[in-house]
């Protein structure tokens, strides 16, 4: 799931200063689960906008804002309210914001910062475990990703800053390489420690990513 959070209100005040009438868009997928752009947050944001002397012409929570065509279809259902607004405020991740901005001519204001691809530990608690690097090493590292969970993304073991099994950048975080080492020991196999891991192929993560299941994958 994509983790997102509300931008600082001062920044939003600035971004919205030139507009009087706004249409609000939320997302029923990730932004709802991490409570940044679901029904409840859209309602709260609307109240805040009213406090800022703005008019809200309407709102919609789109099923998956990242779905470009679906976002277009859902917005069409609110054609008049969107047309009436000076700008559309989107409480969704960066993908969702861009689905909207590619679909309409009107100015779009993103209300959230997108932070990472998160696992849900428990409700309201999210952790980054995968950074979508395109060159997965999990099968060798006992299912713990060093590219993401080592602060430096090291591939050949811990750095010199590891102390008592904890990371140098945050003593609350366990060292990814200690965890990998322990789990591989429990599994009785050398795994990634059996070889010197060569430099990573970052060309697999070249931006912007494209993936197509049509035309033989091209």
């Amino acid at each position: 799931m994509i983790i997102s959070e509300l931008k600082p209100l001062e920044e939003l005040q600035q971004a919205l200063s030139e507009f009087d009438k706004l249409f609000l868009v939320g997302c029923a997928a990730c932004a709802t689960v991490c409570k940044s752009g679901g029904e409840e947050e859209i309602f709260k944001f609307q109240e805040w906008l009213v406090e800022q002397d703005k008019d809200v012409t309407g709102s919609a929570v789109i099923d998956e804002a990242c779905h470009i065509m679906r976002a277009a279809r859902d917005l069409r259902h609110h054609k008049n309210a969107v047309a009436e607004a000076d700008a559309v405020v989107v409480l969704a991740c960066g993908s969702g914001i861009q689905s909207i901005s590619t679909n309409i001519e009107k100015r779009v204001v993103g209300g959230l910062n997108s932070t990472f691809l998160g696992n849900v530990r428990r409700f309201g608690q999210y952790e980054e475990m995968c950074s979508l690097c395109g060159d997965c090493i999990l099968n060798e590292t006992a299912g713990i990703c060093p590219v993401t969970t080592c602060a430096k993304g090291l591939l050949n073991g811990p750095c010199g800053g590891m102390e008592d099994g904890h990371c140098e950048i945050d003593a609350e975080i366990e060292c990814a390489w200690c965890l990998i080492y322990e789990r591989l020991q429990n599994q009785n196999r050398p795994g990634v420690f059996a070889r010197r891991v060569p430099p990573k192929n970052w060309s697999r993560r070249r931006k912007p990513g494209r993936h197509s299941l049509r035309n033989g994958g091209r």
């Binding site: 602060a151 430096k152 993304g153 090291l154 591939l155 050949n156 073991g157 750095c159 800053g161 140098e168 950048i169 010197r196 891991v197 060569p198 430099p199 990573k200 970052w202």
Partner: peptide, 20 residues
């Protein structure tokens, strides 16, 4: 890590590690 220094907002590179 860049976090410890005077440019904590810098993007740390770590394209290679010390072994590489």
């Amino acid at each position: 890590h860049s976090k410890f220094g005077d440019h904590p907002d810098a993007r740390p590179v770590f394209d290679l590690d010390s072994v590489q």
